[in-house]
C-alpha cells in the first residue's frame, strides 16, 4: 500500500518536473522567437547609416562587434555614435550619418586600432582602402552642376581628390557656348567617407553615401568586355576581322576612326638642299 503511494508520488513529481521543464522551455522559446524577430527587424539599417572604416561585411560586423564604443571614444572628430533603442540599427553598434558629420579619414585610423575584437578589420592600414559606402550622385535634377552652375564642391572636398570624383566636361546645349562640369564618382577610389554629402551646397544633398549593396549593381559573370579580355590575353581571342576595304578611286582612302573620306594629296618630291638645286640648274 505504502509502496504504491510512493510510486504514485514519484510519478507525480516526475510529471510535475516534466511539465515545469516544458513550461520553461516554451516560455523561453517564445521569448527567443520574439527576440529573433526583433533583432532581424532592428538590424535593417537605414540607408543613411554608415559604418566606420574597416567594416567589410555588415553581417560579419554584427557578429564581431561587442558594442563597447571604444571606436567612438577614439575618434578624434567625435563623429561616430552608438545606436540607441528605436533606431533600426543593432543596439550599441557604431555608425555615422554623412550629412551630419563625415569621416575625416585619419591616416592612423584610430577607430580601427581601438577595436578589441577586430570587428573593424585591423588589416585596414591605408585609409584610402576603406570602403564605408559609395558616393552616388543620386539626384541629377537638383544638382546645380546639371544646370550649368560652376559648383564642384564635392569634387574639391573629396579626400581622394581627382580620383574618387572627377569632372566630366559636357557641352551645354541650352546656351550653345558653355560647358557643364559634371561630377562623376569612381567606385575604385571612393572610400565612402561622406565628405561630399556633408559639403553638398544644396538644401538636401544630391550626392549621397549609400551602402555598397544599394549603390552598386552587378553585371553578372557572363558579361566579358572584349577589349579588356583582348588586352589581358595580349592579342585577339578570335580570328581578327579582315580589314574592310572600299573600292575607291585612286588618291582616296577611308578613315574608320571618324575622318571619313580622305583625299590623298599627291606626294611631294623630296626637298633638295638649295645648293643641289642651284647645281642642277633651272629647267
Amino acid at each position: 500500500m505504502k509502496k504504491q503511494s510512493d510510486l504514485d508520488l514519484a510519478q507525480q513529481s516526475r510529471r510535475r518536473f516534466l511539465t515545469n521543464v516544458a513550461r520553461s522551455a516554451s516560455a523561453v522559446g517564445i521569448m527567443g522567437l520574439g527576440l529573433g524577430l526583433y533583432s532581424k527587424q532592428s538590424s535593417s539599417m537605414p540607408a543613411t547609416a554608415i559604418r566606420p572604416p574597416g567594416v567589410n561585411d555588415e553581417l560579419d560586423f554584427q557578429a564581431a562587434c561587442i558594442r563597447c564604443g571604444l571606436c567612438v571614444r577614439d575618434c578624434p572628430y567625435d563623429m561616430l555614435k552608438l545606436a540607441q533603442p528605436g533606431e533600426n540599427i543593432p543596439l550599441g553598434t557604431p555608425w555615422f550619418e554623412a550629412r551630419a558629420a563625415a569621416c575625416e579619414m585619419c591616416e592612423d585610423i584610430p577607430c580601427v586600432k581601438a577595436c578589441p575584437t577586430g570587428a573593424l578589420d585591423p588589416k585596414l592600414t591605408k585609409i584610402d582602402d576603406a570602403r564605408m559606402g559609395l558616393a552616388v550622385l543620386i539626384d541629377q535634377e537638383n544638382c546645380i552642376a546639371f544646370h550649368g552652375l560652376r559648383c564642384e564642391v564635392c569634387f574639391n572636398v573629396c579626400p581622394v581628390r581627382g580620383k574618387a570624383i572627377t569632372l566630366d566636361r559636357r557641352h551645354n546645349e541650352r546656351t550653345g557656348k558653355h560647358a557643364f562640369f559634371i561630377p562623376v564618382v569612381h567606385s575604385d577610389s571612393c572610400t565612402g567617407c561622406g565628405k561630399c554629402e556633408q559639403a553638398c551646397v544644396v538644401e538636401e544633398a544630391t550626392i549621397k553615401i549609400l551602402p555598397q549593396h544599394l549603390a552598386q549593381g552587378k553585371m553578372g559573370d557572363f558579361y566579358r568586355l572584349g577589349w579588356e579580355e583582348k588586352q589581358k590575353a595580349g592579342g585577339s581571342l578570335v580570328t581578327p576581322d579582315i580589314e574592310h576595304r572600299y573600292t575607291l578611286p585612286e588618291g582616296q582612302s577611308y578613315d574608320f576612326a571618324g575622318e571619313g573620306l580622305v583625299q590623298e594629296r599627291p606626294k611631294k618630291a623630296k626637298t633638295e638642299s638649295a645648293l643641289d638645286a642651284l647645281n642642277r640648274g633651272f629647267k
Binding site: 522559446g29 527567443g32 527576440l35 533583432s39
Partner: peptide
Amino acid sequence: LAMTLILSTISGTLAWEFV
C-alpha cells in the same frame, strides 16, 4: 542564457545585446 547563445548562433549576431 542558453537561448541567447543558441540564438546568437542562429541569427549570427549578439542576440541578447538587442535588449
